[in-house]
Amino acid sequence: MKTNIIYNTSSENMPQIDDKSVKLVVTSPPYNINIQYGNKTSKGQIVSSKGAKYKDNLDEDTYRSMLSLVFNECKKKITDDGSIWINIKNRVDDGVIIPPFWIMDFFEDMYLKNIIIWNFDWGGSTNKRFAPRYEYVFWFVKDKKNYTFNLDDIKVPSLNYRPDRYKSQLKNPTDVWRISMVSGNFEERTEHPAQYPEKLIERIILAGTNENDIVLDPFMGSGTTAVVAKKLNRQYLGYETMQEYCEMAQTRLNKVGDNND
């Protein structure tokens, strides 16, 4: 089986990957919220466009059917001690918030270990409700007792360290992660319209894998998962239907190789 490759095809079927070979799946599927990502509009008309767009307005049945196929494939590919992490956010329908807890319906045969709140410091503005500043990360495991969790690799400084009570100045991170979104001046920024930050994926990969383990992203996008996996000496696999994004990811991966030479 080949590794360290991004396939330019749908992840609804993954014949290139052996069953029970992937330690960790981490991804952010299309949100299906009918937003034209990256387009600048004026008076309701698109006046400029940055980067390729992906279709984000499937009818709900088609969308959920696609996710079901992809996630079922992911479950076949992970090891018995593997895990799946899904980043997704709220939808707004006719002014009403719809939380994404429906995502759990796809993982009734797995165990939910955490719901992470990814909190960030900027984003869209609103004038009829509080501005949204978080997304979810759902963490599912195949075996509720036997799974990889490298706590020592992700500990953070304790703000209230007391040497008389604690052996270390480091502590377990909480389930609220304050990590900035990828802004225009970030070195990692690409033209992908919905790019998540390397720091978010770094913590997940460090916690859920060891060196040389395989990390899979079935919605690879700009390649963040692959880039972080490569930097952390993990192997990566991915799927992405848009050729432009595959090329974008490969450009980023090539830079990682240059940095390691």
Rank of each mutant, 00 (worst) to 15 (best):
N4S: 05
I5W: 09
I6Q: 00
T9C: 10
S11G: 15
M14A: 04
M14N: 06
D18T: 03
S21L: 07
V26T: 13
P29D: 07
P30A: 06
N32L: 04
N32R: 03
N32W: 08
N34S: 14
I35E: 04
Q36Y: 14
K50M: 10
A52P: 03
Y54R: 00
K55Y: 13
D56L: 06
D56Q: 06
D56R: 05
N57F: 13
L58D: 10
D59M: 03
D61Y: 10
T62W: 02
T62P: 00
Y63E: 01
L69R: 15
C74V: 03
K75P: 05
K76Y: 03
I78P: 02
T79P: 00
D80H: 13
D80W: 09
W85S: 08
N87H: 13
K89V: 10
N90V: 05
V92C: 09
D93R: 13
D93M: 13
D94N: 15
I97C: 02
I98H: 14
P99G: 04
M104Q: 14
D105T: 11
D105M: 11
F107K: 04
E108H: 06
D109V: 09
D109N: 12
M110K: 02
M110A: 07
I116H: 02
W118L: 05
N119V: 12
D121K: 12
W122D: 11
G123D: 08
K128Q: 11
A131Q: 09
A131S: 14
P132Q: 08
R133L: 04
R133C: 02
Y134A: 08
F138T: 01
D143E: 07
K144L: 05
Y147A: 02
N150H: 05
I154C: 05
I154H: 02
P157Q: 06
N160A: 10
R162N: 15
P163E: 10
Q169K: 15
K171F: 04
P173W: 11
T174I: 04
R178H: 13
S180D: 14
S183A: 11
G184S: 13
N185C: 08
F186V: 10
E187P: 03
A194S: 15
L206A: 05
A207C: 08
D213K: 05
V215P: 10
G223W: 07
V228G: 00
V228Y: 00
A229V: 08
A229D: 06
L232W: 08
Y236K: 03
L237G: 04
T241R: 14
E244D: 15
E244G: 07
Y245R: 06
N254S: 12
N254M: 09
N259M: 14
N259I: 11
D261H: 09
D261R: 12
